[in-house]
Amino acid sequence: MTTAPSLRRGTELLAALESLGPRPALAWHEEGGRIELSGRVLANWVAKAIGHLDAEVALQSGDLLVLDLPPHWKRLVLALAGWSLGARVEILATGIAGVLDDGIRVLATDRPGSDLADDAEDVLALAAVSLAPRFAGVLPPLAHDWVQEVRAHPDRLAAALPAWSGPQPGGDHEGVPRLLVPGDGLGHAEAALGAWLAGGGIVGPAEELDERAVADEAVTGRA
């Protein structure tokens, strides 16, 4: 039985994902079907998201990044990127009153025309759809089309990262874990980080998979 190591910098997470190479790090089931990301591809997404948050909207340590999005792997990518930059990351449903009191530095949302978006300094518009090439809705002035913009950023980091501000890897993993994770909230983040650092991957969201699908995914544990 192996306990996951601590995480001090986002670079350590990227290195763990890169070390998976072509092996699956994430499998996600949604209305349009199933998508699988290798460790290398997921690392590229996270690195690009870090670069975009750093270069395009200047997200800094301590800033508030709010994710007003349905459960999706892109929401998880944004959380990982925000934590890598030392930001505070909140999902809207976890406490809107506190979020509004604090003021939102960056809002990632599929509702860029909402009142909440009007109060954010920067707005990233995206849909919780894996293969969407751009935001399909009306894009307000100054809002960022996240998927289109993030793809233009390098696959490798261009700047040093501050201390990691997210949760620490959790769980005791024996062998190569392949964990089933829920879609709601970010409570599965600790288990996901632990799985990746142990050389495994995650499957989700649990709410969308029946027992046959779970067996087909060769799941070894549940978050």
Results as ranks from 00 to 15, higher is better:
residue 5 P to F: 08
residue 6 S to G: 02
residue 7 L to R: 07
residue 10 G to H: 04
residue 16 A to Q: 09
residue 19 S to F: 00
residue 26 L to R: 11
residue 27 A to W: 12
residue 32 G to T: 15
residue 36 E to S: 14
residue 42 L to Q: 13
residue 43 A to W: 11
residue 43 A to N: 07
residue 49 A to D: 08
residue 49 A to C: 09
residue 53 L to T: 12
residue 54 D to I: 01
residue 56 E to K: 15
residue 59 L to C: 04
residue 65 L to S: 09
residue 66 V to P: 01
residue 67 L to Y: 03
residue 68 D to N: 13
residue 68 D to H: 13
residue 72 H to Y: 05
residue 72 H to Q: 07
residue 74 K to E: 06
residue 78 L to D: 02
residue 80 L to C: 10
residue 84 S to M: 07
residue 85 L to I: 07
residue 90 E to I: 00
residue 95 G to N: 09
residue 97 A to L: 10
residue 106 V to N: 02
residue 106 V to E: 00
residue 106 V to C: 09
residue 108 A to M: 06
residue 112 P to W: 11
residue 113 G to D: 11
residue 117 A to C: 03
residue 123 V to M: 10
residue 131 L to I: 08
residue 140 P to D: 06
residue 142 L to R: 15
residue 145 D to V: 03
residue 149 E to C: 02
residue 153 H to R: 15
residue 160 A to Y: 01
residue 160 A to G: 05
residue 162 P to R: 10
residue 162 P to C: 06
residue 164 W to D: 04
residue 168 Q to S: 04
residue 173 H to K: 07
residue 183 G to T: 08
residue 188 H to N: 00
residue 191 A to F: 03
residue 193 L to H: 03
residue 196 W to L: 05
residue 200 G to S: 10
residue 200 G to Y: 07
residue 201 G to E: 09
residue 209 L to F: 04
residue 214 V to N: 01
residue 214 V to I: 15
residue 218 A to V: 07
